[in-house]
Design a protein around this nucleic acid. Structure first.
Lengths: 339, 339
DNA sequence: ACTGGCACTCGCTACAGTCGAGTGCCAAAG
DNA sequence: CTTTGGCACTCGACTGTAGCGAGTGCCAGT
């Protein structure tokens, strides 16, 4: 059944009021607060239809209506326009992000900024290693049989690992190995390492073969295969706004989910620049069925190197949140492009 | 007034029962559960004295007694012995920590382990930079006027910063600068950098003076002065155990405090190997007046390079928690010593 | 010094009654 | 066919009352 324009207006009004007041909204207060030009009785009829179609529901008989996940979905897809950011917000973003000293700093500032602006839980993924290329690879001898390898990626990510060598190695050999690996690997993706490493082993002086294998094994196993992604989190205190009315009374499952990096990555680890909105039940994790997630990809220019987003109650200000998430992603991209 | 032995026994029994049941404990159930060898009436008299002295209190007339912060303090100081860890716990610790690939990994595993074993919020400080010495200092050219400096500390910490150079610099100059800085700085503490840097500037070829100053400025400002400490956090979901009965109903202030690294550092950033217990009111942060914190220092051997600890309700199992925190700190120290 | 007895306190639960926001339905008007 | 005003009904939220029971303080007796 097709919903006419007025019914959509009613749905929009319900969503907006409920988001603002956190209370089920009735027909009378609805016509009072919005200029719908019809009587409460008419609105009631429309509500009955909306309920039948599954867009709203009553918490109990003789209470007002509350949007369902499906209702929010319709609202997001067809009834809302993205709110432009206020100048104050724009300024806040710029002020917050300038002066970051390194990638860690950028990520931390971003996640706090996002949490503060949206008043929700914010998550920011570090630039993905699998989408970075190697800018430099440094070898630091720790002892004669131990090497620390430091991988510096073009996105600013720096990762270090210890490598146990099968044979002792001296300073000049380290220098040779450093030169060889850098010649082969700089500029390529870590994921493309295997063939390059093979070439390396073939070329290397025989006495360096063992070290080369050990080195490439560590790189492959700890950086490529377990593709070491990282995330930053902030704003968990915002979960307590609305005094446990959202989240059906228990923060437990949500806090548990937020502790799992794997889950966070699945939520906000976007490959495309599209802004995604997951509402309540649409979520794949049971623990997060009472939350909504707005996420988007970011990166310098058009390429995407990571994702960021926020998590909050399904009862959230979608237009505002979407606008903020997008704006922050854009600014972060610009920051990264400068390096 | 001196408390005789039986009164202390009564206090200990009250603490133990309350920690176990989360309910105010009355005189009758107390004599039933413990072999005190006296009647409830006698216990009541003792309770009256304990209350007068401020060790226990009644939530309301005609309810059982609950320990006060002062009561817990006495319990911790004089009435409890540190519980030895169960073999299962020992095994869990070992299993959890072997196979860590780098410092980040060690810290993350440790904090999760601690949260899991104590069923509370765990905090682990990264080895402090100010207590580390420089093992190696690497310079990577990003462009002709930009350098990435990577500091590798003896504790495994790796920090990187971007340095903007006043003048373009070529590859051989970078090599010279790298050699000079390493000669001067390796083995010394970052905090001792200033005089060394001065010597560097004096010695350096004139065309490198500008770069040297820029480099040392970055090191000083972003690593020494803002002494860049880091912490890892886990187990916030454990705050919801005991269903909001602890923490007087609101997690908000606690979650807020946990988001501030500065606060966490003050809480667990120990310099001494002593185990500290802060109980409720003893805490300097208002937000944490309803929590207790058990913290200790850790490090390879006898030197302390960082702190770790847990945070939970004042109603916590102090003997068990203290034992676990100490054991984990010891194991982490051993892990670090191996590198 | 300890104990048994006893009156008292007070939070908790159950129950009944009232209030009011909100609904569904229907007949009349447009 | 849509809209509207009217009306009876529902049901959660709140209030007040009463009974229960765990726990206490006190006191007299051993």
């Amino acid at each position: 059944m097709a919903l006419d324009d007025r019914k959509l207006d009613v749905l929009r009004a319900i969503v907006e009021d409920y988001v603002a007041t956190q209370e089920p909204v009735g027909s009378k207060s609805l016509v009072e607060r919005h200029q719908l030009g019809v009587s409460p009785a008419t609105v009631r009829n429309d509500m009955a239809v909306l309920e039948e179609e599954g867009y709203i529901r009553q918490p109990h008989t003789s209470a007002g209506r509350v949007p369902t996940d499906r209702g929010y979905r319709l609202f997001v897809d067809r009834l809302s326009t993205v709110k432009p950011l206020s100048p104050a917000e724009r300024r806040a973003i710029e002020r917050f992000l300038v002066g970051a000293v390194d990638l860690d700093d950028v990520v931390h500032r971003t996640v706090r900024l996002l949490a503060q602006l949206t008043r929700q839980v914010a998550v920011v993924q570090y630039p993905s290693l699998s989408r970075s290329t190697v800018r430099h690879l440094e070898l630091v001898p720790i002892s004669t049989t131990r090497l620390m390898v430091v991988v510096i990626a073009n996105t600013g990510r720096v990762e270090q690992r210890l490598v146990e060598l099968p044979l002792p190695i001296d300073e000049t050999q380290v220098t040779t190995l450093r030169r060889l690996t850098n010649e082969k690997l700089v500029g390529s993706k870590l994921a493309d390492t295997p063939p390059l490493v093979q070439a390396l082993v073939d070329e290397a002086a025989p006495e360096l073969a063992g070290a080369t294998v050990a080195l490439s094994t560590v790189l492959l196993e700890t950086l490529v295969e377990r593709h070491e992604e990282r995330v930053a989190l902030a704003g968990t205190a915002n979960l307590t706004r609305g005094g446990l009315l959202d989240f059906q009374g228990s923060l437990r499952p949500i806090l548990e989910a937020l502790e799992e990096e794997v889950i966070l990555l699945k939520l906000i680890g976007e490959v495309e620049p599209i802004t995604r909105v997951r509402i309540g039940d649409e979520n794949e994790f049971d623990n997060l069925r009472s939350t909504s997630i707005v996420s988007t990809g970011y990166g310098p220019g058009v390429t995407i190197v990571g994702g960021l987003g926020v998590l909050g109650p399904t009862r959230m200000d979608y237009p505002g949140t979407i606008a903020t998430v997008r704006a922050v992603a854009r600014y972060v991209g610009e920051m990264l492009a400068q390096n």
